[in-house]
Design a protein around this nucleic acid. Sequence first.
DNA 1: GTAGGGTTAG
Length: 768
Amino acid sequence: MRCTRIHVSCLRSLQTKGSSNLQRVNHSPPRKATAGRQPDAMTFSLTESDIVKWNVAITNHMRNGQCESAMRLFNSMPRRSSVSWNTMISGYLSNNRFDLAHQLFVKMPNRDLVSWNVMISGYVRNGKLRDARLLFDKMPDRDTVSWNAMLSGYAQNGYVDEARRIFDKMPNKNSISWNGLLAAYVHNGRIEDAQRLFESKADWDVVSWNCLMGGYLKKRRLVDARRVFDQMPLRDEVSWNTMISGYAQISELSEAKRLFVESPVKDVYAWTSMVSGYVQKGMLEEARKYFDKMPEKNSVSWNAMIAGYSQCKRMDLARELFEVMPCRNVSSWNTMVTGYAESGDIAHAREFFNMMPQRDCISWAAIIAGYAHIGHSEEALRLFLDMKRDGERLNMSTLTCILSTCANIAALELGKQMHGRLVKAGFGSGCYVGNALLAMYCKCGDIEEAHDVFKGISEKDVVSWNTIIAGFARHGFGKEALNLFESMKRAGIKPDDVTMVGVLSACSHTGLVERGTEYFYSMGDDYGLTANSKHYTCMIDLLGRAGRLYDAHSLMKNMPFEPDAATWGALLGASRIHGDTELGEKAAEMIFKMEPDNAGMYVLLSNLYAGSGRWGDAGKMRLKMRDSGVRKVPGYSWIEVQNKIHMFSVGDSTHPECGRIYAYLEDLDFLMKKEGYVSSTKLVLHDVEEEEKEHMLKYHSEKLAIAFGILTIPSGRPIRVIKNLRVCADCHTAFKYISKIVGRVIILRDCHRFHHFKDGFCSCGDYW
DNA sequence: GTAGGGTTAG
């Protein structure tokens, strides 16, 4: 994109003196040359034309990212025109060398209006709006280009109101200004405002019509988009392509194909839209047919096809194409990194990431998300810091991606910093970011802040409601979750299947058996929803926990589909709580058949045996686990202290503060026993001597993390700890005592739910 | 030097 811009300007300056007769290929009206653009080109002497050749060479070097050789050329020029200076500045800006651009700008002997505009638009292109605005306010004269550059900067970065203020203040407006404001509304989802603006005047050009049409498509308002398409007085290839891709992207491929055939201009955009349409529907053969038939391909077309293979986890085919494609760019690399990351092959993802000749924010977001996805959050966070060190600019999407990483590892402080940055950058109240923030606070255990963020989202969608309902449910505030569910319905948002999972799990986590049963059986009548396996699993969990194992089992037998491992897992969990070894064995047997690698199930079953004193069977489970090559996921806990994540495993001796932590745990142990605490050795997996068992319980990872938290986090603030497995019953009891003894709130997230310990009680009501 | 369409993240 950036290069094209330099390219066009360079052609245009050659064109001005008649040496070339290039015609624009597309059908849009020729762009008017701005006043003040012509003068130096009018009287070209031989040396002037030599200067032009130098300038063209500089442009080419800059386009290839060779800033140093461009600078050498510039320095060796016998004479320089203002165009030479501006070309250098603009080249630097396109290559993100902002300081160098600014230095040249300051040094430039006869700065013209264009130099100022080059600087401003360079900053704007890279989202550096404050720098742009500083120059804009300082510049001696402004023309329409200057105003438009600022306007589009605000428009593209979500500052709709500031864009409007600029628009209102402009002394002269051209069609670009009007389109800038229109785009401001469209890009920020304010389609109604765009529509009103559009209706307020008559002489819109084809760009405006296309923009409005694109806005409707973005909102998936296909009928409105089509109406615009049918009504527009003039269509260019962009109009056709926008409409074709609109149909293609909602998988209306027959209509897309019809328009494609009908369209008078089938350029590379149109072909690529068709490829991508079939790719999105997973119809790879059809996509490949279009891809092979394309008269010309560019990197985007190749990328679309590669993305198709990578989305279907056919990384072999993706790689084959990647290796033969003639024009790889950052996106091609990003597509490969993403593809590998999403198919769980983080090693290859990392290999490609490391090999990339250039990276952008998407590359970083992709690899970070890759690590976050497989739970390697430490590495994700390390990469985030590397990214900042690399000077990669944070945009809304990267921030959103980092937010979800923070959420996964419950890095609340870091998440809060991200929140601050989002607000500062003006991304605060949007639904997309709002939902990510909401999820982050929920997963980090700060349900109050989550609720505040939720209240601040101006346009709550079904995802916002689902997130907060599930959030309250997981924190054990079932009544609040159900109240929100009622408000949601009052607000006119239709509950979907995800909502109902949240609602049912709220009932399950709170023990509201009757109410849950009612919701479950009225889902179809009330909201037209069919229960899926997740809903059944919630119900089996709900009944099972309440001790109604028989009902749970018969509900499962009457399911309209085969139970999956998660459903059996709910039954196994309930069997363990209520000591029904026979049912537990049956459930475990089924799970082993379905997921022979599920280490958690071996542990659950082994615990079930151990709990009823069947040490022999518990031992057999361990052997079976070892023989089948399944390894138990080691339990670990982590806690964030002063922006740093500290991780602990059972009996950990690697932490620098180990000595203090163990000594403190001894003190706590003494105090707890004085209060009546007895360690429940029953639930330790291993078959060992009583004393040793107690020793192991004492140093479970969550205990170490919480002790460290009490020692380092100032009093008055809650201790937030995360555990990757379910918290053990002994730790759970201990934390109730500890919360009372030290007078602290302890918030523990295990893989299942949240526990808020306060004054000797837990929010789960010992029901988890 | 300023505006609209197709690929990659979320």
